[in-house]
Design a protein around this nucleic acid. Structure first.
Lengths: 110, 110
DNA sequence: GTATCGTACAACCAAATGGTTGTAGATAAG
DNA sequence: CTTATCTACAACCATTTGGTTGTACGATAC
């Protein structure tokens, strides 16, 4: 059962978003607790604007969500994106497993 | 049990390598069957050199291996890289699950 | 041998990435 | 009201990325 069809561009955005250590750290943190954007920015040795951009990349990749609360923007982890990424890798693993079985069959025949 | 420690740069390379549709297609193909670099290049609407670069990116990320055979370079899928990527996402999922449990506990108390 | 095939690699280019500073607007605090 | 805080966004810059063409060289085919 295909839950939901991802375009190549969606998948690009997902893995691209995960391909940066700062962004992966943000994902971990906002999964455990809520942070405002400035709260996150305080954690890293870079400008507020840089962190803001990282959060935007994560949001476009569906790895976090933002919600306005007063003058703050609250960032939370979004399980959806993570699940998508994981399912993709599961598919690759499945292909690999099929290959292994096919090889085993050939060896059994021969 | 930690099988093997990945640096941030390693993880960057892994996800970066997966963040391109052509490279993901190459990974799928070489998992199913062997291809020479020029065999792969014939499949895509881009130059041989471009495909060669994609293969190099995948090799640095441990997602494929190259082996010289005569004048050809045979590309094969490398399960190692895929497993690493998958384990990483598993860790993130685990963090998420812990969070869900924590929230459930709080709700149970309150 | 010579010609062809498969690969490697350099040089180049446009676009994207990851960072910066600066400006401006909304909301909260004094 | 005034000031401080949080965010958004534009402009800029250096580096990386994803592509190109061209050249060179080892291995195979004729």
């Amino acid at each position: 059962m295909v839950v939901d069809k991802l375009s190549d561009a969606d998948v690009d955005r997902l893995f691209q978003a995960l391909a940066d250590a700062t962004r992966r750290d943000i994902v971990r943190r906002v999964t455990v607790a809520e942070y405002s954007v400035s709260g996150l920015a305080a954690l890293y040795a870079m400008s507020f604007a840089a962190v803001q951009k990282h959060v935007a990349v994560l949001e476009r990749a569906s790895l976090v969500t933002k919600e306005k609360r007063g003058r703050e923007q609250i960032v939370r982890g979004n399980h959806e994106g993570l699940q998508k990424a994981r399912r993709l890798l599961d598919e690759y693993e499945a292909i690999w497993r099929q290959r292994a079985e096919r090889i085993a069959d050939i060896l059994a025949e021969g």
